[in-house]
Design a protein around this nucleic acid. Structure first.
Lengths: 183, 183
DNA sequence: CCTGAATATTTGAAGCTTAAAACAAACCGA
DNA sequence: TCGGTTTGTTTTAAGCTTCAAATATTCAGG
């Protein structure tokens, strides 16, 4: 759970800057949007985490890692895993270690490149993941259960725009520095 | 960064269940929506984290905590903080400890309740936060910079529905158990 | 073939995060 | 007022996460 300014409303509505003497409250709408986006993903993620622990005694990062491997019979390298999961390499190293330990994953040297290792689900790991995935999908469907199909599509589309916009902003930050360096 | 199934598309498009022999792929749209939502918040959060570290040498959780206190001259209790930040009590204990240590926060016993403590920004802490908040707001505005005002409003509204729906689902899980116990 | 740059992974330090157990203080109904 | 419950906080153990440094291997030119 957690992360950035959270608790976007519910108790006393926050929006955290209104009324702060030194703050411009210029882009208030964008700020509120970010807080709401964060609230949604934090709520959902926290509940998934809770249910995975309760029902399957598994952590979310491990479930995520297994999900990446479920469709990859031949396995993935650690680098591929870290890219797809959007986490650091060192993080994946530890997760894989624990999942190999518990018998869910196998790990072998890659044939073509002696630096890399291929990681794959064991039959046991695959069985365990499939069982979890079925329930997981039902949970997600329930979370969004009050949205009409059109609303789901609308959200997808708008989030697609937000994603593209963020990608652009991350690639080309709007800093003072940047403006000077790249006119 | 990180969290649940991530890497929603970009490299080989994932959606992680299509084609998996044992999986129904019933609520595929909801699943894709969740992955996209997660991708958006993960990207934004990761970039904010990176910039906060780079520009101000501060972590995101500390920034979040200070944000909660910025509008509260009299301070908040640890419980109030943990509720608003949506993290555990023990988590807040440690964060506050480190921020008191660094001089950003003061901490005193509450007058009315001998169990609780009030935490507030020190003048130094407030100054530091305000400086960060100004840039932070500009970053967020930039992330959403390619969205038209109407699109921002539309996203807000749809995310509001998603939030309400999730809240309902979390409060009343659609389990087999539940159906039996609460007919 | 040799060298320097890029890539794949591991390691270590620091910090974040949670769940659960333990206390202490406050509250509340009989 | 007593005793049970709730609430505020801390502590602990375990795990997650990142960044940066260290290794090992591959790759690309010359």
């Amino acid at each position: 759970m957690s992360r950035s300014l959270a608790a976007e409303d519910e108790p006393p509505v926050l929006d955290y800057e209104t009324g702060a003497a030194a703050a411009p409250a210029e882009h208030a709408a964008e700020l509120r949007l970010w807080l709401r986006l964060l609230t949604c993903s934090t709520m959902i993620e926290g509940e998934i985490r809770r249910r995975l622990r309760e029902r399957f005694d598994v952590t979310l990062p491990r479930f995520d890692l297994m999900a990446q491997l479920d469709r990859t019979p031949d396995g993935l390298t650690l680098s591929e895993l870290s890219q797809r999961m959007m986490v650091s390499n060192g993080n994946v190293t530890g997760l894989v270690e624990r999942l190999v330990e518990s018998g869910h994953l196998s790990r072998r040297k890659a044939a073509h490149d002696r630096r890399s290792h291929l990681v794959a689900l064991t039959p046991q790991g695959r069985r365990a993941f499939r069982a979890m995935a079925v329930e997981h999908e039902a949970w997600i469907a329930d979370f969004f259960g009050d949205l009409a199909p059109g609303e789901i599509d609308g959200l997808m589309a708008l989030l697609g725009k937000a994603k593209a916009s963020t990608r652009r902003a991350v690639a080309a930050p709007a800093d003072a520095n940047d403006r000077e360096e790249n006119p």
